[in-house]
Design a protein around this nucleic acid. Structure first.
Length: 479
RNA sequence: CGGGGCGUAGCGCAGUCCGGUUAGCGCGCUUGCUUUGGGAGCAAGAGGCCCUGGGUUCGAAUCCCAGCGCCCCGACCA
């Protein structure tokens, strides 16, 4: 039992993360370099994420469809910036059925091109708009340095692709989706992500506007957790998505695309989890509460299990995602640690003493050890557990918000900015020039994350060059 | 693409320098018994193309040559 414990976060954050993903049973390394296998427990978590998003997309008029994995190479050459952005990380199929292909096929790294091609075919009239399609699937990017969930060659996501008659409507769509992403982060993931606009250099290849939500991890690095893009007519021109408008004039469609990927699971881990293992927000946890029965002999077992079974049925009927850990020959101490590693929000311990006293021990995962343990009556347990799940959800968000705010700095000058981005974020005025942005990156490795929508009501001067500046930007080291 | 390291059981390693019985150890796995309120104990088992190919030798995990694969450190992305 040498390596049951994780390295601490302070000791080695990267190694803590790697081992946590494996030990919490979320994913495993695949035989292909850079690829991962998402294990059933990890996939259950992903399904809780996707099912909420899917409902929100459908509620806002979107429909799901599927486009092919393979895309003709020539499609990528139609939008100049897009091909430049993606060329280095394309996987290309050169042979099929033993023959060399006449036109090489790209394994999709994203689907703007093939969807653009199809949209050109489908959109002929203003009556065909808006077209609001979401694809759930995976994409492949030939990454050099990979890490489970955060950056793998193949990853899972949804990609929304919409086409609109005018630019205002398309921009509204972009912002509408970003709002859904924000609500997902706050309400489900308990992550206080910040909405904003990407700088020109950080923009998606081919986009006119890229917006993002940015989240602060435990190590204070930033993680782009979702993006929503407005393309103007860039892709419409490249793929000839044209329609006759109300005035019988030929016009280009305005398109958007947007995504949240399985990377969000990495954010969940790096925002909430601790040295004991995974910590999951109750609304996303595949298992919200686990029952660990404790007994020494058959006599105790029958008494304990009678209570445990009854409680299991009650909680399940109340809609709580509950699990009975009835594994034999494993000590209860091991089970406690095991479920803590897997991030289950609430643990219910039932032993002979509880049977006598009509109580149970309730342990909340967000407060490890004795601090989070309480003894409550079996009567009314369903309500106690429900309330506890709500409390945990709220306290995770509160803790993450306080942590984020405590580590966002307002440096006085460039010297101080260089200091604070080594271990935190800076929110500073910036003149929005590429030169100043590049200088910060060169000096500190920190990049602009986004220009938050929420801004002070007055301007200031650029933290780098001192020129007048209208808006503040977040500078941080990023994943 | 440039520098360093490693391929031996599912995982982590020892053995390799200096060739020589039946290739070991820890974890994990299987079975049985005892255990179970914070990471249990004992016992018996299963599990090997020692990366691949060639060479040297009476004899190669070990020496030589070639190849393959992987990992770590310096330029991009959800």
């Amino acid at each position: 039992m040498a390596d049951e414990k994780l390295p601490t976060r302070a000791e080695n954050f990267a190694e803590w993360y790697n081992q946590l993903v494996l030990k919490a049973d979320l994913a495993d390394y695949a035989p292909v370099r850079g690829c991962m296998v998402v294990k059933p427990y990890g996939w259950a978590l992903w399904e809780n994420i996707t099912s909420w998003l899917d409902k929100e997309f459908k509620a806002t008029g979107h429909v799901n469809a599927a486009f092919p994995t393979l895309i003709p190479m020539s499609f990528f050459e139609k939008e100049k910036e897009h091909v430049e952005g993606f060329a280095p990380e394309l996987a290309v199929v050169t042979h099929g059925g033993g023959e060399e292909l006449e036109e090489k096929l790209v394994v999709r790294p994203t689907s703007e091109t093939i969807i653009g091609h199809m949209y050109a075919k489908w959109i002929k009239s203003w009556r065909d708009l808006p077209l609001l399609i979401v694809q759930w699937g995976s994409v492949l990017r030939w990454e050099i340095r990979t890490k489970l969930f955060l950056r793998t060659a193949e990853f899972y996501w949804h990609e929304g692709h919409t086409a609109h008659a005018d630019s205002d409507e398309a921009k509204e769509e972009m912002y509408r989706i970003l709002d859904i992403y924000e609500r997902f982060c706050y309400e489900l993931a308990a992550i206080p992500a910040i909405k904003g606009t990407k700088s020109e250099t950080e923009r998606f290849a081919g986009a006119q506007i890229t917006t993002s939500i940015e989240a602060m991890m435990w190590d204070k690095r930033a993680l782009q957790s979702g993006t929503s893009h407005y393309f103007g007519d860039n892709f419409a021109r490249a793929f000839e998505i044209q329609f006759l408008d109300r005035n019988n004039k030929l016009a280009y469609a305005q398109t958007t695309s947007w995504a949240i990927s399985s990377r969000i699971i990495g954010a969940l881990i790096m925002v909430h989890s601790d040295d004991q293992g995974l910590v999951l927000p109750p609304r996303l946890a595949p298992i919200q509460a686990v029952i660990v029965p404790i007994y020494k002999n058959d006599d105790e077992k029958s008494k304990v299990m009678a209570v445990a079974d009854r409680i299991f049925v009650e909680l399940k009927a109340a809609g709580i995602r509950i699990k009975m850990d009835d594994r034999e020959n494993i000590s209860s101490g091991f089970k406690f640690n095991d479920w803590e590693m897997r991030g289950v929000p609430v643990r219910i311990e039932i032993g002979p003493k509880d049977v006598e006293k009509n109580s149970v021990a309730l342990a909340r995962r967000d407060k490890p050890g004795k601090e989070g343990k309480s003894f409550v009556q079996q009567v009314g347990l369903t309500e106690s557990v429900k309330q506890l799940l709500v409390d945990i959800q709220a306290s995770l968000l509160k803790r993450a918000t306080e942590y984020r705010d405590a580590n966002i700095h307002d440096p006085k000058d460039y010297e101080e900015l260089k200091q604070v981005v080594q271990d935190g974020w800076a929110l500073s005025y910036w003149c929005e020039s590429k030169e100043c942005e590049a200088k910060v990156k060169e000096d500190t490795k920190a990049t602009t994350r986004n220009i938050p929508f929420e801004q002070p009501d007055h301007g200031g001067t650029c933290i780098v060059c001192g020129k007048p500046s209208k808006r503040k930007v977040y500078f941080a080291k990023a994943y």
